[in-house]
Every structure is written in C-alpha cells, then in structure tokens.
Design a protein around this nucleic acid. Sequence first.
DNA 1: ACCTAAAGTTCTAAAATTGAACTGTCAATT
DNA 2: AATTGACAGTTCAATTTTAGAACTTTAGGT
Lengths: 161, 161
Amino acid sequence: MKWDELEEQPCSLARTVAVIGDRWSLLILRECFLRTRRFEAFQSALGITRHLLAERLKKLVRLGVLRRIPYQDSPKRYEYILTQKGLDLYPVIMAIVHWGDTHMVDSRGRPMLHEHQNCGKLFDPVMVCSECGEPLAAKQVHVHPGPGARQPVALKAEKVR
Amino acid sequence: MKWDELEEQPCSLARTVAVIGDRWSLLILRECFLRTRRFEAFQSALGITRHLLAERLKKLVRLGVLRRIPYQDSPKRYEYILTQKGLDLYPVIMAIVHWGDTHMVDSRGRPMLHEHQNCGKLFDPVMVCSECGEPLAAKQVHVHPGPGARQPVALKAEKVR
DNA sequence: ACCTAAAGTTCTAAAATTGAACTGTCAATT
DNA sequence: AATTGACAGTTCAATTTTAGAACTTTAGGT
C-alpha cells in the first residue's frame, strides 16, 4: 500500500495516519506546539536530517497542517506555523503524551507536567462523550457505517472490471 | 535516530511514537478495536505484507500492547488480543479518528459514526481537563518540567566526556 | 576578503518495506 | 493413501525510504 492509497481509504484513521503516521511528523508537531517555528530550530531540537525535515515540512504544508510564512526579505526566509487544522491536532498529541505518561515512564516519573490555565491545576487529559460528558471506554462504543462508508460491494466490482 | 533511541528520550510523546509511529501499527490497532484477532484476518483486512505483519505483531507483543494467546492445539495457533496497555490507546485512536472526521472527509461525509451505549447518542470525542472538566485548548496549557525531565546540562556533559 | 547564519539541496550508503514464493502442521476430502 | 486447503508464519530479491554528510545560495558583519 502506498501513502496516497491510505489517504483515499474510507477510514478517518487511515486518512489521518497518511498525515501523521511516520516517525517524524508527530515530533515536528510537538515542536510546533512548543513554539518552534524555524528550520534550524526544528533540526537542532530533533536531530532529524535536514533532507527529511525539508520533505516533512513540505508535506505538512501541502496537507494544510502548517503554513509557511516569510519572516524577512533579503534573503527571503520562512517560518512554519500551525494552521487551525494543525492546532486541531492538539487532542491527538495530548492523548499520545498521556499514554506515554501512563505506560512509558521510568522510575523517575513524567518528563513533563501540564497546567491548565483555566483552573490553575496540573491535569491529565480525559476523553469524554460530547453528548453526555462521561469518560469514554472502548466497550461502550458501537460503530455504525456513516454516509462516507465504503461503496456497496456490487459497485466496487464494477470498478474492477 | 534509531527507534530505540526514541524510546529512551525524556519525552512521553517520543516514547509513544516509538510504539505507534509507523504506517502500520495504528492500522493494526484499529483492527484490534474492531475485534480482529488472527493473523490471516489482519492480513486480509489491511493488505499489509505478511512479513511486516508478523514483525509488527511481534513488536506490539514485546511492548506489552498485545498478548499472543493460543486458541487451539494441533496445530498450535495463536491470536492477538489487546492488553490493558493496548486498550488504553483508545483515546489516541479516537482523537485520530475525530481529526480525520473533521479534516479529511470528502463530500460524502464520515465513513463511520460512533454511538455511546451509555447515553445512546451519536457522539464526538472531546478532550477535557481532568480537574475542571473544561475542554482543552493548546493555548490554555502551560508545560513544566516534571521529575523525569532531561538531566541538567552539566550532567549531560559529564556523560559525553 | 573572509566568516557566519539560515534554509535548503544533493549525493551515497544503510535500513526498512514490498511482493511473491515457500514451509510446516494438521484436518478434511477424494 | 494421496491430495487439498487453512492457518501462521518465514525467506529472499527488488524497490523505496531514511540517514549522514557535504554543498549551495543570499546576505550581514569584521
């Protein structure tokens, strides 16, 4: 399977994996949320090769997650900032961090703590139901095909012919 | 950077990316949450090569996300089920799916809908603060070094010497 | 004139992934 | 008794990605 095919699958997870499902993209986004904006800064913070960094930034811009904006002329230099689409990845990042905090820490404890400015407390992110507000568990969720589900099998067969 | 180095970084995101940050692991986990358990079933659902599937399953078992349990003798056959550590990835999966639902759908709409058995409604997952219950936004969160943060620079220099 | 900084690009070697065929065990079928 | 098929992998060559290092371009500072 190629990356482009992933993007076209009738599955929101697969399509998102096409965007962030590699070793570097999520780390680049972590840096974005920590206010990193420039090529050299990404490179030295992550230790990614310049080649790959250039490629990933290009990809994230193409997909609308980052915007490349000039911050000076002569020589023209650009920096990378999160779009709204990129900012919307925050829950993904936090869910990942929280899993790491729970299952991948050593004896010394968490590398980072998060403080919620709203309430002033150190917190963990919790995923809840938009309708009833209760925390979500896999077993309480049933999945139904939506309007964008895979075509009926008959139609798929047509296409193959 | 190698995968093992990722696992050892003082960052819960990097450590989690070491587990799920590749093209296939998240898709395999999607299938697990959809009740897929067996090698052939994963293979035909995903179109992954058998070679890679075997490797990824082994890795997820080694990392404690899946457990390999025999379901028959003669010939001995095994199936793969989520451990608690694996089940805890549900919020990550849901956050990813929700982002795809928001930003990667075509005109036909979502491929899948989710129903919360608790309240009986179709829902979206929302990430909230464990302390005050308010939805989280990146701008309202401040980050502090925790007990497992990177060693002081002086100590790092020691190590290098 | 030379050095540095930033943001890339180019090149070769190493590593990961793909695709396809092959293996071993056993049950069921011919 | 021999053949077929299911399942859970393993093996191997070819292709694609990634890593590592050097190089390029534009311009300011000394």
